[in-house]
Nucleic acid binder design. Structure first.
Lengths: 194, 194
DNA sequence: TTAATATTATACCGATTGGTATATTTATAA
DNA sequence: TTATAAATATACCAATCGGTATAATATTAA
């Protein structure tokens, strides 16, 4: 790994939390130089523009979430157990190395929908992939006779994602942490009732 | 209504859609002068600063949603019918005079949580009030023997709100309109199963 | 160790940011 | 109709925005 690659990664590491909290329009070059201790020249020697850092930062934040889920997932054998990981991860994300600022999907989706098409596409792809993974677990669980397939698996998966993301939004807006717990208990019930 | 009050309202009318689409950090004074056809001097003659316009714009957008729901609600007699209004309004919000840019609660919550405490508080209050209304309908429906009370009414209400807001987020991210329909059908089922 | 190269810092650019003092116009009450 | 007050426009402010040309400094291969 060359020096440049290392600083590129360093820049992303330090700026990703800022993009995830202040948003993409709300994060300035000055925020980035202060967080990294580097100068503008140094940042622009490694990235073409602010957008490119934003895109890389989203990827970094999202991969962090994926990694946590995958790690927790490996402990589980049953499909219900694997599905429950999603609810548990989001329920306990203060205890886990979750990206600062909350869920990058939620944060990015609402800001980028009209203003930043590339970012929006990344979020869209992430959601589609999440949905497809959930449907795959449903199929495997049904084939293993662990539970019976819901009538509309896509609908089931999308409802689960929507409820989780909505739970995070409720906490961001109200500051009431128990709101997340209550809603995620509903998600758990949804899984256990399969 | 004085001239000043009328222009104040005019400014909010014209800028509220911009705040709701581009966000509060993403909306500039120039955006506001272009949308209104007024000058900065005129805007600052009626508002102390950009923040004050943002706050008034949020109120305007939120009241618009409240008004739609209230109007649709009056047609309904049963509590189930009233609860279903929420799902139906969000399912058909292209056909209704819904604020441009989508749900102001969702849009504002994710941006304002770290950057704009006053705005965040407004969103928080709106959500709490929404939850309380839902719980009140549940109580009335249970008292009328229309259905039986869910075990945890707060949880039921918060789950419904989270799922609706999550559904909107999914559409913003993926652009797939049928995602909203699918998720809101789950919300409908949640109500019908009471 | 040296020369070539890659990386980072300095100093600057024009444009735009939110905001304001003042002049001009418009509404309003006498 | 006129005087007064209210509302709007003009012209400006310093600060910051994202971005860049160039100079200085490290890195790296020979």
């Amino acid at each position: 790994m060359s020096k440049a690659e290392r600083t590129r990664q360093y820049i992303v590491e330090k700026t990703a939390p800022i993009f995830n909290t202040k948003g993409y329009a709300g994060t300035s070059l000055t925020d980035m130089t202060e967080a990294t201790g580097l100068t503008k020249g140094s940042i622009y020697g490694n990235f073409a523009n602010k957008d490119e850092v934003a895109l890389a930062s989203f990827d970094y934040n999202h991969k962090k979430v994926i990694a946590i889920i995958q790690q927790e997932m490996e402990k589980e054998k049953t499909m219900k157990g694997k599905l429950l990981v999603y609810a548990n991860v989001y329920e306990n994300f203060m205890k886990l190395p979750f990206p600062k600022g909350g869920c990058p999907l939620l944060n990015t989706a609402t800001e980028a929908d009209d203003t930043h098409p590339q970012l929006r596409e990344k979020v869209g792809d992430a959601i589609t992939s999440w949905k497809n993974k959930l449907v795959a677990y449903l199929k495997e669980g049904a084939e293993n006779k662990e539970f019976k397939m819901p009538a509309n698996p896509d609908q089931w998966a999308l409802t689960m994602i929507a409820t989780i993301e909505g739970a995070i939004m409720l906490v961001q807006a109200t500051g009431k942490l128990n709101y997340r717990k209550l809603v995620l208990q509903s998600v758990e019930k949804m899984i256990l009732d399969l």
